[in-house]
Amino acid sequence: MTTFPAAEWISTMMFLLALAAAGSGALIAALSTRVIRSVCGLAICCLGLSGLYWFLHSPFLAMMEILIYVGAVCVTIVFAIMLAEPDEPAQEEPRKSALIWTGVSLTVALALFCGLAHLGVRGNWQEAQARTTDGSIREIGISLLTTYSAAFEMISLVLLIAILGALVIARGGREHS
């Protein structure tokens, strides 16, 4: 289709860029001591993820990822932190128990990762059906209200519980102080 030199190469580079953004963003989010930098890492990670969705031919999902995770979630978190965080984070001495727990959690995470990766690469997956829809809003709306309505409703329940939980915590905090 295309006659541009190195078109394959460029698109591979874009894919690797998205992959690197997702990976490095996640690392920044996990390793940074400043909470705001962690949130920036989260934003980078989400941008990378949306790039991967784009490569999976799901532009709608990619855009939603940016709109919701970068535009709403990260902004809300930064806003909350900006008003609350002290100027300089206190440097804490690493405790011995913390080191042990880090080791344990790293082992568990590594085992989980290897297991999932093995399952993903070697597992006996069913071949995905050829896509019959064109990914338009109409199709997405119909499938959200028919095929996936149960999942859709479950998500709203999760959100409801999250709101209730936040209310409970906020109330508890008020009584203590």
Binding site: I36, P59, M63, I66, G71, V75, V78, F79, M82, S136
Partner: peptide
């Protein structure tokens, strides 16, 4: 085919930029 959505998705990053600049 999701052009409108794309504009608003990327438009939402602006807030983040001003906020990070300010912070």
């Amino acid at each position: 085919n999701v052009g409108l959505l794309m504009i608003f998705a990327f438009g939402s990053i602006n807030v983040m930029a001003v906020m990070l600049g300010g912070w």
